[in-house]
Simulated scan of single mutants.
Amino acid sequence: MADEHRVKRQRTDSDVDADAEHKTPPLVRSTEYWFDDGNIILQVESTQFRLTKSMLSMHSSVFRDMFTIPLPADEPTIENCPVVILSGDTAEDWILLLGVIYPKFYLGGCPSARLLAAMSRLSKKYDFPLFRKDCVSRLKQEFPTILKKYDKTDWNFIKSDSNTFLLLISLAREIGLHSILPQLYCSITTLFPNKYLPKILDPADTSLAACDRLACLLGHTNLLRLQATTTLAWLNFNVESPPIPAEDCCSSSDCTDAAKAIFISIFSPEAPSQLPEIWILNDWNKEWDSMLCSTCRRKAKEIYNVGRETCWQELPAAFGLPAWEELKSLDFE
């Protein structure tokens, strides 16, 4: 009899929150990409896009093949349009891609890294060959495998922002574009070490996969060692005949003091929390010119520039990656 009079537990606020957490969000129609003459509806997450089969087929072989398959007679429709649910995609990615398929203005210039990532991801999955080719071309031109091309590139093909490097590292892994990874890792560890390395060391941060975190940390240590025997070898004072001052230097004491001052400025940052600078791919610092005599300057530059070539060849290995040629052969295309 006791069971017949069991009191039902009162629902609490936490129960309501749990229900809301597991509740499927309502379907919404895209305000930008719901065309009255559309004849196919793509559903991505909770967003529906009403588009035309002809436009999708023109760009994508996957959709072209899909639309050749007859639909079952009892297939559910919305406004007489069949509905295709695309699993694993994000509505944000599709909005960015559709902005290219249905442009409101000429794209031109440099697309953002976020737009490029969406186009690369979806064009690979659904085989949009022209879009994929353009994305891969931009990435390879922005991050070439040849030093002379690197020297001529300065964000000519992609618009850079604060999250560009982290975003593109994850993208390169996802779409199999391995040849751009050394430069991306190098950018994090040499250009912005005080910004990115603390994030990489933070276990709560999920910006990068574990393998990419390890590569960056390994690379930072390896590059510090590499520059000591390459680009900055002219600052080596721990040998019997240091490079500076040069044999025919006209002011040996001044050039020795200048070289030591440069050494301190690189390896002894002003703030204790700052990491030392890495000079492996940077251009020669023109401020050093006025600090050295013409003879020492010429010798130091020669050592520095030969060192850059060596560093470039060793760059992939510094991050635990294969050599440049093998990385290129591993690219998905």
Rank of each mutant, 00 (worst) to 15 (best):
R6I: 15
R6W: 11
D13Q: 11
S14L: 13
D17C: 11
A18C: 10
H22E: 14
H22A: 15
T24G: 00
E32Q: 12
W34N: 07
G38S: 13
R64M: 15
E75Y: 11
V83Q: 00
I85A: 06
D89A: 05
E92K: 06
D93T: 02
Y106A: 11
S112C: 07
A113V: 06
R114E: 01
A117M: 02
L122P: 03
P129S: 06
P129A: 03
K140S: 06
F143Q: 05
P144Y: 12
K148E: 06
K149R: 12
D151S: 08
K152W: 00
K152Q: 13
S162V: 08
N163Q: 07
I169K: 00
I175H: 05
G176A: 09
G176P: 00
L177M: 02
I180L: 02
I180T: 04
C186R: 00
S187G: 13
T190I: 07
L201I: 12
D202Q: 11
R213Q: 12
L223A: 04
R225V: 14
A228H: 09
T229D: 10
T229Q: 08
I244K: 01
T256Q: 06
A259P: 02
K260F: 03
I262G: 00
S265E: 02
I266F: 04
P269M: 07
S290G: 14
M291H: 09
L292W: 03
S294N: 11
V306R: 10
W324E: 07
E326F: 05
D331T: 07
